[in-house]
Amino acid sequence: MDELSADLLARFRAGDESAFEAMFRAYAAPLCDFAMYFTRSREQATEVVHDVFLLVWARRDRLDVRTNLRAYLYRATRNRALEVRRRDTFFRRWVERTTVEQADDESARLAPTPHEQFERDEQAAALRRAIDALPERRRMVLLLRWRDGMRNEQVAELMGISVKTVENQITQALRTLREQLFHDRG
């Protein structure tokens, strides 16, 4: 995931709707994944990400041009997700029930994209399965690191864990994935 161009950021700050949408489309999915790490419910994760985008839109004129937008979005997502999680202790029972329903709904509602339908790359599918099967924290570390291209220090800061823990997670994940995907014990 690349940084958005300076031009897009400038248009966004000027209140350009299409720039806002482009920004949302670029970051919404990875941010939802990230929010899930804290909330553990799709419903809440999307609520958090919506909150965050409403927030940045409302504060767009106060956004410093030199701001690392991506870091800002991830930090805002983490803070909001933790807030929502605190607020929702009362509703744990309801949330759990919703999550089950939601899981069914999602699978029914989301038609597979052409990309998914024609995912001919067997190895990519196998990799996806393997990463999804990792323990949640390890999965999140890998996605932030490999998919979102963050440095270990950034991953540690966002997830509220030490750099050492991030490194351990990567080492463990590499061992697991090598064995599973390349049948390599080396």
Partner: peptide, 20 residues
């Protein structure tokens, strides 16, 4: 390298159109 580029192409489980 293969793992990294595979992760980058991991198809998303979020319906961004719907979210938008």
């Amino acid at each position: 390298q293969a793992l990294r580029s595979g992760a980058q192409r991991m198809s998303q489980s979020w319906n961004v159109d719907l979210l938008w």
